[in-house]
Write a protein that binds this DNA or RNA. Structure first.
Lengths: 309, 309
DNA sequence: CGGGCCATGTGAAGAAACCTCACAGAGACC
DNA sequence: GGTCTCTGTGAGGTTTCTTCACATGGCCCG
């Protein structure tokens, strides 16, 4: 008689967070619980569905294809729920609202936020994740972080402050890579794309001074950057990963970048209202500049603009 | 640090079910819990959000506008989750799959299903709710229920069996209605539409031999029939309601139909595969015919084809 | 107008789910 | 081999959810 037979919702939420972060420990942090709780929830979900959602050794867990598919559907569903749920007005002072690309927030900004809080404990920060355009006034945004082509630093209603260069390169699971892999080999692998930045491959090729990329073995498109990167980690193919997004996964060995990284045609910029940028927003911008300057640069590209071996 | 601050998910599920059914008791039945549990969940959700989601006396509860907005967003989100969640294969015999319009399922078919089960306990039935086209083989559908214009009883791949006539008329909350209300008064009210049947008003006007409807005070469109009807019950305006869908709400007084009902240009039909319709599907079709014949007809239309007073 | 009916609100107690703590196992890296 | 990181798990406590039974309040009908 039940119209729907939904899996346990809390387990779905836990798995969705795991899907985005790629590690239970991080998902647990987001949900404000211990890693054990997340482990149990995901286990419960797998039992309920009768499908393996994770695979690999405990120390380097990845999603199965079924898991990736489920997580990709869950993220927009929960986003929709979050967007539709009115929030009661907070008691404290209005936080500084920073609009940011979701993956940049997760992989770069949020891990560094405690540093900002340490220097400016009086400024509460709220990160609003968004890919698209925004309006300072209508959306209550104080500062936005976006990608901008180099040179395109003019805007009618915002001041553009580049604070970090953008390097990118092909990344994949260690099992797919070989020592001394060359360009042709990489291009022969299945390619992974993200809908939020479909030009990634052509942009990267342009940086290599390669006009036309050969057709790939296959292509697969994802709705979000982080799912594309998780798919790469799961061994489904090769993705163009921005240095800032994959730095930690490279360090931990979940991903490798056999061709290294090259500078992209964009920079990561902070946007502030052209007039009346609040002191708090300017303080945040200054902190971004300092953090950008102290972020390590990628290793020397193993494959420079001459291409191939 | 939490990326999202989602309300309690189980409370959202309870409220979503309440939103579709319009009554806690029915929602509780769907969720296989008692009405008290649903009542508490919704109360918890209202406390969490700090927003009233329901209003009106206990015996005739309705959603507030905020509640309607939330419920409308939750339904597709949960649908998406349900669609993405793989289900383990059931143990028992393959059930008879009946594809049906969601609102017809909820308001007419499901309340009568126990009657079918009583006569045919050996045939398990699964109701698959769907608005769109379907494929008997690809979707595993044994029988489908759809609306069909009268006379359009031919089909390449299915046998069409009309089993119930379609009557419709404007319905609204009792507070919006007056005794002796006439056509002009009804047409002056805010109009409610549903995306799944946008022609409802023009179809109804055609039945009245009225060529052009005057522009309404305002229009509001909903994604589902049942939300449009809930909006009508909440007093947001007037909707064209099919007799089969609103019969129970009229009986209970949640809705009134001051102009009565007139025959529509469609009939409700059962579709079975043109060849190899299983005996189980035919048994179900026969049962539909009997149920359709025994469904009471609407009261005499207070407003016939001459229109107005 | 009073009794019956229906649907929801609620107190208290029991049931279920969840979380934490602490430790174990398993790779990875040096 | 030692150490670090991350996940799996047993036991036990805590919170949350449900149920049952009854109360409340509106509607209908005679």
């Amino acid at each position: 008689m039940a119209r729907r037979q939904l899996p346990p919702l809390n387990a779905l939420r836990a798995f969705e967070a795991f899907g985005r972060h790629g590690r239970m420990t991080l998902a647990a942090e987001e949900l404000c619980v211990t890693h054990g709780a997340v482990s149990r929830q995901i286990r419960q979900l797998e039992d309920h569905l009768g499908v393996a959602l994770t695979e690999g050794p405990r120390s380097r867990l990845r999603m199965t294809e079924a898991g990736l598919k489920l997580a990709q559907a869950l993220t927009p569903a929960f986003d929709q729920i979050a967007a539709a749920s009115p929030r009661r007005a907070p008691d404290g002072p209005r936080p500084l609202v920073v609009s940011c690309l979701p993956t940049f927030a997760m992989k770069w900004l949020i891990p560094r936020l405690p540093g900002f809080q340490a220097t400016h404990p009086e400024i509460p920060v709220r990160v609003a994740e968004s890919n698209g355009p925004f309006d300072f006034k209508a959306d209550g945004v104080d500062l936005a972080i976006r990608m901008r082509p180099i040179g395109d630093d003019r805007s009618d209603d915002s001041e553009v402050t580049p604070f970090m260069d953008h390097f990118h390169g092909p990344v994949m699971a260690p099992e797919r890579a070989r020592a001394g892999m060359d360009l042709a080999e990489v291009l022969a692998l299945p390619r992974l794309l993200t809908r939020t930045f479909v030009e990634s491959w052509s942009d990267w090729a342009l940086g290599l001074a390669v006009e036309d990329l050969p057709a790939p073995a296959s292509e697969q498109e994802f709705d979000h950057y982080f799912y594309m990167l998780e798919a790469a980690a799961a061994g489904l193919g090769v993705a163009i990963g921005p240095w800032a997004f994959v730095q930690r996964d490279l360090a931990s060995g979940r991903l490798v970048a056999p061709l290294g990284f090259i500078p992209g045609r964009s920079r990561i910029v902070a946007l502030t209202p052209i007039e009346g940028g609040s002191p708090r927003a300017l303080a945040f911008r200054d902190w971004l500049l300092a953090e950008g300057a102290s972020t390590p640069l990628p290793p020397q590209a193993a494959c420079d603009s001459r291409g191939g071996r």
